[in-house]
């Protein structure tokens, strides 16, 4: 065996000049490979703890934090929650969640426009995952970038409020394609708006025929029971596996 390169030839010349001349090497690696590896590690950790994990995504101001506040307040007596809050700056959302008594950790991404699997992996270290049923990850308000980053969640939940316009699913198809559930929020405002609910749902199904849709208002409480049922079903399924 050649001791220089380990090949089967007994002896052959290694020309180091040649070795270091410009040459091409094949890579074939996905740009998200590292994030996907870390997301898979998160997912395995969450599965071992029988934890149901949701990644809440939306544009800023759709009501993610308000939905969480109401959900935690209504369900915390029967489900143990933990919340990761992602924002570019401030602890405002974490303070709102903390007021419900649920464990919360704020992640400030600074210049970053999304949470990634690495941030989430470290973000959950503070929580007692074994004693938690549901981890809610509230992503940075942004309908573009968070679509591409798997965090290890069971489902992405896209929140769209009726003040935003019904064609958002067509304008930001990656996000609505990546989501398994769409919550249409603020439906108590429908009488005052020209928002076409049926059209919005049709647009969402154009980019994702399998998407589940729940209409609700975390202000009036309408539709919240349906969302809670969906959540409870997810928790039950996790416990059975």
């Amino acid at each position: 065996m050649c001791i220089d390169c380990g090949c089967a030839e007994p002896f052959h010349k290694h020309d180091h000049e040649d070795n270091h001349s410009p040459r091409k090497i094949q890579v074939g690696e996905d740009l998200l490979a590292k994030n996907n590896r870390l997301a898979a590690a998160n997912r395995a950790r969450f599965a071992a703890e029988q934890l149901f994990v949701l990644n809440l995504v939306s544009s800023p101001g759709s009501g993610k934090t308000s939905i969480l506040e109401r959900t935690l307040t209504d369900l915390k007596s029967r489900l143990a929650f933990a919340v990761l809050e992602g924002d570019q700056q401030t602890d405002n959302d974490a303070n709102r969640i903390a007021a419900t008594g649920v464990p919360v950790k704020q992640i400030n991404t600074g210049a970053g426009c999304h949470l990634d699997a690495h941030m989430v992996g470290h973000g959950v270290d503070l929580f007692d995952l074994g004693a938690t049923d549901v981890l809610m990850i509230e992503n940075v308000g942004n309908l573009v970038c968070p679509a591409s980053f798997d965090l290890g969640e069971a489902h992405k939940v896209a929140v769209l409020s009726v003040t935003e316009g019904e064609d958002k699913p067509l304008k930001y198809p990656l996000m609505f394609q990546a989501a398994d559930l769409m919550l249409i929020n603020k439906i108590d405002l429908l009488p005052y708006l020209r928002f076409d609910l049926a059209q919005c749902k049709a647009f969402a199904r154009q980019v994702n025929p399998a998407i589940k849709i729940i209409e609700l208002s975390c202000y009036s409480g309408e539709g919240m029971e349906q969302w809670y049922d969906w959540l409870q079903q997810g928790v039950n399924q996790k416990r059975e596996t």
Partner: peptide, 29 residues
């Protein structure tokens, strides 16, 4: 990106390519 076929308008379009983001090769010295 859409699931609606532009030809027959069925909601049955499968995406074959377009989501790639990959490093294919490097030229090194």
């Amino acid at each position: 990106l859409t699931y609606t076929c532009p030809l027959c308008e069925s909601l049955a379009l499968e995406t074959l390519q377009g989501k790639e983001m990959k490093i294919i090769e490097l030229e090194i010295d």
